[in-house]
Amino acid sequence: MALLDVTDLEIAVAAGGKLLPVVRGVSFAIEENETLGIVGESGCGKSLTSLAIMGLLEGSQVRITGGSIQFDGRELTTLSAEDRRAIMGDQMAMIFQEPMTSLNPVYRIGDQIVETLRQHRDMTKGQARDRAIELLDLVRIPEPTRRVDSFPHQMSGGQRQRVMIAMALACDPKLLIADEPTTALDVTVQKEVLDLMADLQTRTGTAIVLISHDLGVIAETCDKVAVMYRGKIAEAATTRELFSNMSHPYTRGLLNSIPVVDHDVEWLEAIPGRVPTIDEVLPGCAFHPRCPLAEDRCNAEDPAPRDVANGHAVRCHFAGGAA
């Protein structure tokens, strides 16, 4: 049984008395020690999926309307709020896109790590502080015994993201969800943070769900990839399989829009058109208005996922050659 098993997840936004579906029939699984990348444009539902797994949708306009999230043998969608909180920050932790604003500005970083520890572990203040210093050392913050008393505004973005990682790892979570953890960072710092996460994974065996819009980041760090488009998984495979055999026109479009450094090109390829807004109802394949391969059939019939290779599923009528 997988550590995290998401099946047919449906998420909707309540707006004007209606429920607008934003995530539809999303399924994936992840084992210990594995990294799953979820990639897609803004608004494709990747962040909402991660917030749903973490349990952070409560109190917002967004809710889970169907499907199941099994974590470590427990069904999360029916768990009480209290039981959910016992898992959050302990067995499951999350780091966010904006390191500059994700830490509370009025508390010292050490105290913020201590708070997580004391929430889930029976520790004295002194023990928790010692552990916080260890964690800061683990995420390679220089002079951790001194920095433990720093306030967030006294640190750089990269350092703050390391603190977020230290805080997330405080209770040795089985699953770490990272929502665009490097997007707001400089390229050199990005690489350091990604290396750090990979390194910590080898040590602790934590499973990681990495949300990104950057196929490059995904290629470098993930074992498996799910490409999301408009609330659905368009294509899912192991990273090696996906990059050697891209089958969905959207995935190919994403890859083509990455600049290649040693090619001198006048224009960068872009996917034509725009992402439809959530209240637009589209018959057929959600990608067909922007798809170079689209035919009449795509307009009428939503393709079901089909396997083009072992463990490589694609939602496209043309996948695997047969139309």
Binding site: M88, G89, E98, S102, N104, Q119, M164, M167
Partner: peptide, 26 residues
């Protein structure tokens, strides 16, 4: 609505603790 409140919730803190220690304090 600030990001650090989401971080506090992700720690598994009780909503009352999030409201007083994190939201009200700021």
């Amino acid at each position: 609505r600030e990001d650090h409140v989401r971080t506090a919730r992700a720690k598994g803190l009780h909503p009352a603790k999030v409201a007083i220690k994190h939201v009200f304090r700021n």
